[in-house]
Design a protein around this nucleic acid. Structure first.
Lengths: 370, 370
DNA sequence: CGATTCCATGGAAACGATTCCATCATGGTT
DNA sequence: AACCATGATGGAATCGTTTCCATGGAATCG
């Protein structure tokens, strides 16, 4: 009793028309009212649903889009993914997911798989650099970056970058308009001094403003020895940190971990032990914030009495911590949603980049210097 | 300079053979050594990669699998997804992701989309019941459930269910072997008294043992009025709770929320306010645990002094809470990995279901009754 | 040595859609 | 009345692969 799906041919025969006509009716082409009606009726009766397989082959491209994130266990990327999915669903497009683990090699492999599948659009939180994404783009992919730029891209949007409006509807494209190469123009260095830029739109948070606000806030509390705890992809954030702290930067206070929780913990712990004189830490992501809290507790450092903490990303559990964590919030879901929007529009208008605002949410993890 | 991808025809011509031969060589069919070598060389030189589009059309099915989770913002499902992705990657299969928001309607829509795409395998944390999944299976889909069973399935694996071994390799299939209908046999009710069962393999945690352990633990601390805070899909857990508590169950102490964080908070807050006499709460998921902590704090209930708390799911932030949360841990990543394994094996052997062990991790959120 | 088997091989037919193009009818214009 | 523009329509080509089948040569067996 396993009847297979009806094909366009079945519908054509049942309706007494040619397959071309059926196709036209179903995709909005011209047809006489009575034919249209009959075809529609037959199609509905046969429960006909066009096979994406046939269509894709003919059109030499699969619908849908890829989505690459470093780690779904990181709540922020979960939020971002939800945003992408929400937008994709409203457009009826499938999303094929890849988790890169912050490994450029895995990422490249995933790109290859998408290419093979005929998926030519991808939203990526990139792990690799131009050597991964250049070829992908030359192979005909439409790429939108989210949350970060490839590691060898410029690290900051520069002083001139404007904020994307957050208040407008999600589809509001108003301000915040710049491609990656536009963004590169603004950082003061002549483009020629860099590798040829990828002309790829991106949806980023205004890390620069976020970090600056956090550092100023800590400064205002009297902190002078402020550390930065970063991870992969936090290049723009650490650059902003350096700028906000101002020269000379105490390089021992800038520490990096790889993507894993273990590494994050080790980095945090190492930082606290090697520099007991630091009084405040800014972390570049929530996994690092988690690690910092854990390491501090292990070393009997009290937050915020002994060390103040500002974490990037506002995640639900930040409020549950004790003390509740002061964070730099970035709109993860929006970021995903707008990236997907950009992707879907990519055909018509030339997509522009977006810079979303961040917000310092003061809770209880920062106090005056002691 | 946009050269499109080489096709099998290009390779055939360049190698001076027919397309059939190329196809055979590339898919391991028989061919003479020298032909094979030549074809392989040409293919490599042309950077040929077979298009999944053509293959899928011919074979009337897309490779890869779907993955449906209720909410990627819930860390547990992030873990589960990572597990699925890990297994899929090792098999070179794409994963198309859907987030159902615990809404059967959205879920059904997503099933339709998969069908259209020719994806005929899906791993699902189901939101809908037999009315969604029955048709999907009849349409030829291979389905594996993870974390829960459809809402109208029996709520418990029953006393006879055995644990899947966790100690073995991930591919160890050893114990824990039962299909959903097997599991249904064990709960004491004759199968005839239920709707026709879906014969679908599932990977579940041993909720029954997990909840029982937690309740016994709380009992041991002197608690008598223990509440259960559940959400969608926690049917098996609440059933286990009822069983563990034993009749008569105080129905006011069993409260349900929908999937959203707001609803979870409202339910928790309502529970605490309506029954100030309760001394302990078990939550059916981490989002509900989060809500319980928040609601307790808002109402000036101290954990564990005023109320003890056991949360389902061990998530990284459970340890960061203050006090650190006592949890029922279930192996989210393993669950995803094994579900994907089951899916991939589905062709050969008849897939069996798996019951994974849970573990009570005692931290600081439970104390003696006051 | 003839017959049978076996293997490598290439041509061609699927798979299910879109889309180009030719055909035909219709109606309006010169 | 001849002609042209318009619009609906169906046939057939196409996308890139797999797979069926026929062919031909070589090798094995009787």
């Amino acid at each position: 009793m396993e009847s297979r799906r009806a094909t366009i041919k079945d519908v054509a025969e049942a309706a007494g028309v040619g397959v071309a006509t059926v196709s036209r009716v179903l995709s909005g082409g011209s047809a006489s009212p009575e034919t249209r009606e009959r075809v529609l009726a037959v199609a509905a009766h046969l429960d006909y649903r066009p096979s994406a397989l046939g269509r894709n082959l003919r059109q030499r491209r699969t619908g849908g889009m890829g989505l690459f994130v470093p780690d779904l266990t990181d709540t922020f990327y979960g939020q971002l993914a939800e945003g992408v999915l929400a937008c994709a669903r409203s457009a009826g497009e499938p999303v094929v997911l890849g988790s890169t683990g912050d490994d450029p090699e895995q990422e490249a492999e995933l790109v290859g798989m998408l290419l093979e599948q005929g998926v030519d659009r991808v939203i990526a939180v990139p792990s690799g650099g131009t050597d991964t994404w250049g070829p992908a783009i030359k192979a005909g992919m439409t790429v939108v970056f989210a949350d970060r730029l490839p590691s060898d891209a410029p690290t900051d949007a520069g002083p001139g970058a404007r904020l994307g409006s957050l208040s407008g509807s999600p589809s509001d494209e108003g301000s915040g308009a710049a491609t990656v190469s536009d963004l590169m123009m603004l950082d003061g260095l002549p483009p020629a001094s860099r590798a040829r830029p990828l002309d790829v739109p991106a949806v980023l948070a205004d890390d620069r403003a976020g970090i600056r606000t956090a550092v100023r806030y800590l400064r205002g509390l009297g902190h002078r020895r402020i550390a930065f705890l970063g991870g992969p992809g936090h290049g723009r954030r650490v650059a902003a940190f350096r700028e906000a702290v101002g020269a000379p930067v105490d390089e021992d206070l800038v520490v990096f971990a790889t993507g894993s929780r273990d590494s994050a913990y080790a980095a945090a712990s190492g930082l606290f032990q090697s520099r007991p004189d630091l009084t405040a830490v800014v972390t570049g992501g929530n996994v690092l914030g988690e690690a910092a809290v854990l390491a501090a507790r292990e070393l009997d450092l009290r937050v915020p009495r002994d060390v103040s903490l500002v974490m990037y990303d506002d995640v639900p559990w930040a409020e549950l911590c004790s003390p509740p964590l002061t964070v730099i919030a970035q709109p993860g879901r929006d970021m995903g949603y707008r990236a997907a929007e950009l992707m879907l529009r990519a055909g018509s208008r030339r997509p522009r980049s977006v810079l979303l605002p961040t917000e310092l949410i003061v809770r209880g993890s920062c106090g005056p210097r002691h």
